[in-house]
């Protein structure tokens, strides 16, 4: 009786369905990580500028995403856009937008931190040998700050993957939702189904995030010395 629930995972095409759900989760995560990191790097470079207004605007943007929980942001975008602006977006697109904006905000802080932690003479010597701004960033600043940003950026990526579990709350059919459907279907025959299905999803998230966080730890240790 106790162990019969695990069979739910292998019944019919259940495993296949769960993995397809995982694909949706992974798709949202990958798209928003790519968009977020690219946008975040650009914003991070902009934030090193001297102008007070630019600094202030992006600071407010960052703090807004830090202070208000991501779930609330998902609700704001999912409910307000159709109600006020008559924009009906797919829940998956909404979540990619929110996650990208959040990722960009966090990434910009990482990039900015790395850029301003570089020794000042690097910029000065670069300018002295006549590099223009783009060359300065491309050949001098970005390669050096990459070492400092990469571990934190990977950490951010694991956080984003973990947070994709929230997608189920705005009705994206991803791995958690598929799990719920399977549980509801099997509930009468197999009362212990929920234990095994949620346990399995728990395990799936773990094997997605564990290698990444180990990689980030290793890079941090390797580059710290």
């Amino acid at each position: 009786m106790l162990n019969s629930g695990i069979n739910v995972l292998f019944e019919g095409i259940n495993m296949q369905r769960l993995l397809m759900g995982l694909l949706v989760t992974a798709r949202v995560a990958v798209f928003s990580i790519i968009i977020g990191c690219t946008l975040g790097t650009i914003i991070g470079v902009i934030r090193t500028s001297k102008s007070k207004i630019i600094k202030m605007v992006f600071r407010i943007y960052l703090e807004l995403f830090r202070i208000i929980p991501i779930l609330v942001w998902l609700f704001v975008f999912y409910f307000v856009l159709p109600a006020d602006f008559n924009i009906n977006l797919d829940a998956e697109i909404v979540s990619i937008i929110v996650f990208s904006l959040w990722g960009a905000a966090e990434m910009s802080d990482i990039v900015r931190g790395a850029l301003i932690s570089l020794p000042k003479h690097q910029v000065e010597s670069g300018k002295a040998i006549g590099l223009n701004t783009i060359q300065l960033y491309w050949y001098i600043l970005i390669p050096q700050s990459l070492k400092r940003t990469l571990p934190s950026a990977i950490n951010l990526a694991t956080r984003m993957i973990k947070t994709t579990a929230l997608l189920v709350m705005i009705g994206v059919i991803e791995v958690v939702k598929v799990g719920q459907q399977i549980i509801e279907h099997a509930n009468l025959k197999n009362p212990t189904a929920s234990f095994w299905v949620y346990g399995f999803i728990f395990f799936l998230y773990f094997i997605m995030c564990y290698p990444l966080s180990k990689l980030s730890q290793r890079l941090e240790r390797k580059w710290a010395s």
Partner: peptide, 14 residues
């Protein structure tokens, strides 16, 4: 390495 939502689902429903 696991999301809180899944931990809660496991505790509450599993």
């Amino acid at each position: 390495n696991t999301p809180l939502l899944i931990q809660l689902f496991f505790l509450y429903y599993g």
